[in-house]
Write a protein that binds this DNA or RNA. Structure first.
Lengths: 206, 206
DNA sequence: CGATCTGGATTATGATCGTTATCTATAAGG
DNA sequence: CCTTATAGATAACGATCATAATCCAGATCG
């Protein structure tokens, strides 16, 4: 007797009501929607039903794609970490060729501040992720390492250790700064924070 | 006909089932409990009933103290901002006499990382507050200004503007750094972030 | 083409939430 | 000391949530 697994269907092996390709696209649509909306509303700020509706679906099919809401959240966080790279790729920008100033201009910007849904999960979800379980924290820790390494490659310094120090300082200041700028209800103060942080980050290669 | 207001009773003016002093102490107990637990669990991470239970009460009396849960949250955030000063006062430390290194040792520490409930709301609730309404954001913006001014008074620099720049950089890096350190599931990486940030902050007066 | 079984829709379920109604004991005013 | 009205307890209400049960249309396989 064959037991059919709904979660990880093998293409072309089992009969189905929608093509495997359609399901995969639906899956991606759900994850992408969640990735954006969760950055906007927090990891617990939006429910399964609303997320599905935003993806153009209804609640019913949810558990054909994910074992639990937590599973979607994990995938959405992963997707959020990848989105930065995907966005650059879509614009034809090579991340390796970006200078520290390029990174600063993008990251520490009013646009990034005002559009958390398209932005860095470290700026949008710091508190939420720090309260999350091993799964989400593990994904984020990987993201941290990649970000440090990428920034370190753009930093100046006598040796690798110094470049890494600068990268960590810059990244902590960037994520913290955008977070504080989002909090401030005083636009002038918010802009002052952004400008100050931007200058520091843009200068780590000097 | 006199209309009796339950929310803001005037002492000695109206009859009551508990002494006004008792009510005030209860009120403070609820706010203090909430202030700690909300920093630990996020602004939406714990319910009214659980908060009351932790304060040694039941749900019933809640609305004799607060018009809504949001009102409690606002008071709790305010209390969280004041707690830093109250803690120092309890230890007999004069905030004005603390050097940048003193601040760095306290703020960018493993203890602060591991005890968000007793720590800075900017580190524990950045994301949550940035998604909150005008009320919470306004309270936080005041807190921001005070923190910047306090740190600027400890920073070195040719003029006020430069001292303020350093204060903003240091504070953004501190809040961001503790946030990232809390996220990291790799203890070594977490400690590296703290050490790096601590060094920068401790050095803003040189 | 007919049998099969899955993706997704509709609807139900049980838990949990903020909030409210009702009750009781008691501190204060006259 | 007796009336009054409030702090807080118990319990209920309606909304919202994650999850599950059921159903159906249709893609795939033999």
């Amino acid at each position: 007797m064959i037991i059919y697994m709904s979660q990880e269907a093998v293409p072309g092996r089992f009969p189905m009501g929608r093509s495997q390709l359609e399901k995969q696209k639906t899956h991606e649509k759900i994850v992408e929607t969640a990735s954006k909306r969760l950055r906007e509303e927090g990891l617990e700020g939006i429910g399964v039903a609303d997320l599905m509706k935003e993806a153009g679906l209804t609640v019913g099919g949810f558990y054909k794609h994910f074992a639990s809401r937590d599973d979607l959240v994990a995938e959405a966080i992963q997707s959020a970490f990848d989105s930065w790279g995907r966005k650059l790729e879509a614009e034809g920008v090579n991340p390796a060729e970006m200078t520290a100033a390029d990174v600063a201009d993008r990251y520490v910007s009013a646009y990034h501040r005002d559009n958390p849904g398209e932005g860095c999960p470290f700026a949008a979800l710091t508190s939420d992720i720090s309260r999350s379980g091993e799964k989400a924290r593990g994904i984020a820790t990987d993201g941290l390492r990649r970000n440090f390494a990428s920034l370190a490659s753009k930093a100046a310094g006598a040796d690798d250790r110094e470049r890494r120090r600068r990268a960590i300082m810059a990244f902590a200041m960037m994520t913290g700064g955008v977070g504080l700028a989002r909090i401030s209800s005083d636009e002038e103060l918010s802009a002052e924070i952004l400008a100050t942080v931007r200058d520091f980050v843009a200068g780590i290669d000097k």
